[in-house]
Design a protein around this nucleic acid. Sequence first.
DNA 1: TGGTGTGAAAGGATTCACAGCC
DNA 2: GGCTGTGAATCCTTTCACACCA
Lengths: 253, 253
Amino acid sequence: MATGRTHRPATRSRGIPEATVARLPLYLRALTALSERSVPTVSSEELATAAGVNSAKLRKDFSYLGSYGTRGVGYDVEYLVYQISRELGLTQDWPVAIVGIGNLGAALANYGGFASRGFRVAALIDADPAMAGTPVAGIPVQHTDDLDRIISENGVSIGVITTPPGAAQQVCDRLVAAGVTSILNFAPTVLSVPEGVDVRKVDLSIELQILAFHEQRKAGEDATAEDEGAPPMRATPTGRKGPDGDMPAVMPA
Amino acid sequence: MATGRTHRPATRSRGIPEATVARLPLYLRALTALSERSVPTVSSEELATAAGVNSAKLRKDFSYLGSYGTRGVGYDVEYLVYQISRELGLTQDWPVAIVGIGNLGAALANYGGFASRGFRVAALIDADPAMAGTPVAGIPVQHTDDLDRIISENGVSIGVITTPPGAAQQVCDRLVAAGVTSILNFAPTVLSVPEGVDVRKVDLSIELQILAFHEQRKAGEDATAEDEGAPPMRATPTGRKGPDGDMPAVMPA
DNA sequence: TGGTGTGAAAGGATTCACAGCC
DNA sequence: GGCTGTGAATCCTTTCACACCA
């Protein structure tokens, strides 16, 4: 996953595999687009293409939800939209709180797709007293001191952390203490949470690093002996080492 | 995860499994923190805890890179930092271009962790002529018309798309045509790219939906018969259906 | 006939547990 | 004695291929 994840002991939820759950939102998005174009039915092949997966996987995924298709015909678009929405819990309203209203927090508050499907930005919270009261995306920013009250008054169970990394764990602890049981973490930190609390993380720099890894491979594909820049130098206690490349005299950053 | 992904046919890169590659940045981050505290060596147990994984997984991951540890002692922090950096291709400089300088694009341009490790924001590109010349995070925004030139002049091979969903595929096509071979996509769209181009996606609403799924399960754990709100109504051609819950009279959005 | 639903096979990833080495 | 490195076992995910049915 996107993105790696700190998850609960993977008790397969109601029998639906985690990998399938992660794809349901993709299917839902593709189905919503079809629904808006008033397409009545769709085959696994067409839907799979729209969602960017293969049809066997899609059919297997849907088989965990139940038998919602019609052989020889395909799937009823409206019906599937509803079933997947319900399965994902999107038929109810989820108030979320965003903590840390810097550039990223403001971007999220303004993000339209946020509000679109069951999610509602119920509160914006920041530690800077100067921001208190200032509206961002039409919602007034509130101070961290009131975090507890804000969370419980709004019945928030999903929190989004967009603070600097140094503040993330503390904010996380306070959110959890106030009753939040799901956290979406944008801060580049490993959060530790008690049993029963879900954390998902979104980490730009990790994604870039993964891309760089593959990018590097592409570059070195024909020109195997690329210019590696720094000169090698021994620096490990033992004589053993990896496939190639040793320690340079000067550390990068 | 963060996150699902459109990836190339999973040719296991230089023998390093994809799941391992996705964790290397985590280890690197933990190691960098240790390095800054001048910690000389670390055991798999300690490092695993810092990175939020278990030690067996970490050791297995490292075994794909080579034998970098010392039995009975642990791993040399500096040495590992360098080896992982090199493996990830972070010993070289990666100029990236951000296309779509709205709230999110600006947030990324300002994001410090971006520049920290091998990545450099080389260009900001937007379709709005009014923005051209305006500096964001100290970098002047350039117009989409010049995309080709900007990409090639700066040697950009990694592009970040933060445009509205409607523009994403077009921008993607132009980036690829200009020579970009790795794309980080923040737009909620499935991008299609030619063979050899890597796409990773970061999708806020997908992450939230996954959290909502688990959140819903928690809520229904003791109170199995939750109030489901809308009344059920048949709407599918066949009589078969899933485990529970049918079509409501009114569709949710 | 055309396309779903699903057992069975194949492929990866994670965990176990311990040999091997410092 | 302590901790790494790794085969073997286990678990999860994906893919295959075809029975089944509107």
